[in-house]
Structure formats: structure tokens, C-alpha cells
Simulated assay, not measured.
Amino acid sequence: MHDESAYGLWSLVILNSAIFIFFAFSFVKPRTISDWRSLGAFSAFIVALFTEMYGFPLSIYFLSGWLTKYYPDVDFFAHDNGHLLHTLLGFEGNPHWDPLHIVSNLLIVMGFILLSSAWSVLHKAQQTRTLACTGWYARCRHPQYLAFILIMFGFLLQWPTIPTLVLFPILVLVYVRLAKREEQQALAEFGDAYRAYMHRTPAWFPKIKLHSAETKPEKTEEKP
């Protein structure tokens, strides 16, 4: 018999959704329409995730025939077995300590750190009506959207569901389109300065600065 109390916990759905959306809101501090759209897209993903994690396991019901056929001894309605990748990839033990879950937590933490750092730079630039090109904006042009993608991908690794798997590529496309729209606005406002910024800074994959050791001058023997 599976653990009936593992789901239907709608208070946890609301609480966890509110916590993560609040964290994102506190870092983003949305002011523009684009800010609110990006936060709204992220919020939809979070609500869908925690609804299946604690509310109603739609994906497990939908896949129950296939899962029971190939994994007859696994009770997928027990909450720990909701970590589908943990079972499907053959991991054993507590799913919260498997490699996927550890990588997931690292991606989520990295995403929130990146989000906080990127938006502080962006909002200072918005206040002074200058180009955001320092901090993480010196490494890639869209660190705020990259942060949202990292966080969502992190959650997918530990608790994949059909709705979030469908939502993820859609939301990535939403962020790409928002980024392109914002770049057109920046080109209109900053002109050649933004073109030069685009030329030296990649859009999505941060450039890593490798500091090579300076070449030391060769020593010469002094003649007596």
C-alpha cells in the first residue's frame, strides 16, 4: 500500500511555491513589463512543479501502466519514488543523496546567486539609464534569464514531470524572445555602444577569463 499522505498536501504546494516565487521576486524586483513576464513564466513552472510534487502526481498516474510493467516491485506512489530519474537510472538508497539530486541543488543555488548578482547590476543601470556591462553582464548578455533556466533545469533533474518537461522548452523560448526584444530596445537606446557590447560579449554562454601568468624576462648573466 502506498503512502496516501504523500500527496494531497496542498498547503505544502502553496508554501513551497510562495517561498521560491518570493525569492525570485526579491532578487528580480520587477519594474518593467519584461521583468514581470520573465517572473510570471518562472512562477508558472514552479507552481506546476510543486503541484505534482505534493498535490496530485499527474505524471505518475499517466505513466502508471508503463511504470508497473517495467518496475513491478516499485511503489511509485510512495513519495521518494516520485524522483523518477533516481529509479529509472538504477540509483539506490536515499534519492536526496544521489548524484542527480546533488547536481540539482548546486544548479538551483548557482542560479539564485547569479540571479541576485545580475539583477543588482541591471537595476543600477536602469536607474542611471546606462548600459549594464559590468559583473556578470561583462561575461554574457543575458545572465538573468540564464539564471532562471539553470534553476528550472535543476528542478527537472530531481523531480521531472510531464507538465514541467513540456513547460521547460517553452519557457526557454520565452526567455530567448524576451532577450531579443530587449536587445532591440537597447540598440535603439544605446546604438553603437550596444553593438560594440554585443560584439565583445556572448549572449548566453559566459566567457571564462583565464589569467595566464605573465612571461618573466629571462635572466642574463652579468659579466664581471
Results as ranks from 00 to 15, higher is better:
Ile14Asp: 07
Thr164His: 03
Ser17Arg: 13
Gly65His: 00
Ala147His: 00
Arg139Tyr: 03
Val13Gly: 06
Thr68Met: 04
Glu221Asn: 06
Glu183Val: 02
Leu131Asp: 02
Leu173Lys: 13
Leu39Asn: 05
Asp98Gly: 01
Ile208Gln: 06
Ser26Cys: 12
Pro95Gln: 00
Ala203Val: 13
Ser116Trp: 08
Gly55Asp: 04
Pro160Asn: 05
His142Gln: 05
Trp66Asn: 06
Ser64Phe: 06
Ile208Met: 10
Leu187Ile: 02
Leu114Tyr: 00
Ile19Ser: 12
Phe76Gly: 10
Asp75Ala: 03
Thr32Gly: 09
Met198Cys: 11
His199Ser: 14
Ile151Gly: 00
Val172Cys: 11
Val109Arg: 09
Pro143Tyr: 00
Val166Asn: 04
Arg31Asp: 14
Pro57Asn: 07
Ala179Gln: 08
Leu150Pro: 02
Glu92Arg: 13
Pro57Asp: 04
Leu88Gln: 07
Leu67Thr: 06
Glu92Gln: 14
Phe45Val: 10
Arg195Phe: 05
Ser64Leu: 04
Asn16Ser: 10
Ile60Val: 13
Ala118Tyr: 00
Thr201Ser: 08
Ala179Val: 08
Thr220Met: 13
Lys223Ile: 05
Gly8Ala: 03
Arg181Val: 07
Gln144Ile: 08
Arg129Trp: 06
Ala196Gly: 01
Gln127Lys: 00
Phe155Thr: 09
Ile102Gly: 03
Lys219Trp: 07
Gln158Leu: 08
Ser64His: 05
Leu171Gln: 09
Phe22Asp: 07
Thr220Arg: 15
Pro224Phe: 05
Phe25Lys: 07
Pro30Thr: 00
Ala41Ser: 07
Trp10Ala: 05
Arg141Lys: 11
Ser17Ala: 12
Val166Met: 08
Ile162Leu: 11
Leu187Lys: 09
Thr128Ala: 10
Ala138Asn: 12
Phe56His: 12
Asn81Ile: 00
Phe205Tyr: 14
Asn81Gln: 02
Ile19Asn: 11
Ala196His: 12
Ser17His: 08
Ser43Leu: 06
Tyr70Cys: 04
His199Pro: 11
Gly8Asn: 07
Glu52Asp: 09
Gly82Phe: 03
Met53Ile: 04
Leu85Ile: 06
Glu182Met: 11
Leu85Thr: 08
Pro163Thr: 14
Lys69Thr: 15
Glu214Val: 15
His211Leu: 15
Met110Gln: 08
Phe50Val: 12
Arg177Ile: 03
Ile149Leu: 03
Ser212Asp: 14
Val28Leu: 14
Thr32Asp: 13
Ile162Phe: 06
Ile33Cys: 05
Cys133Tyr: 04
Met110Leu: 15
Ile46Lys: 02
Leu12Lys: 13
Arg181Lys: 12
Leu187Cys: 00
Ser11Trp: 12
Tyr7Gly: 13
Lys29Gly: 12
Tyr194Ala: 07
Ala41Cys: 10
Leu49Gly: 04
Ala138Phe: 03
Ser212Tyr: 11
Thr68Ala: 05
Leu150Ala: 01
Val174Arg: 14
Pro57Met: 05
Trp66Phe: 15
Phe168Pro: 01
Thr164Asp: 01
Leu12Ser: 13
Thr161Val: 03
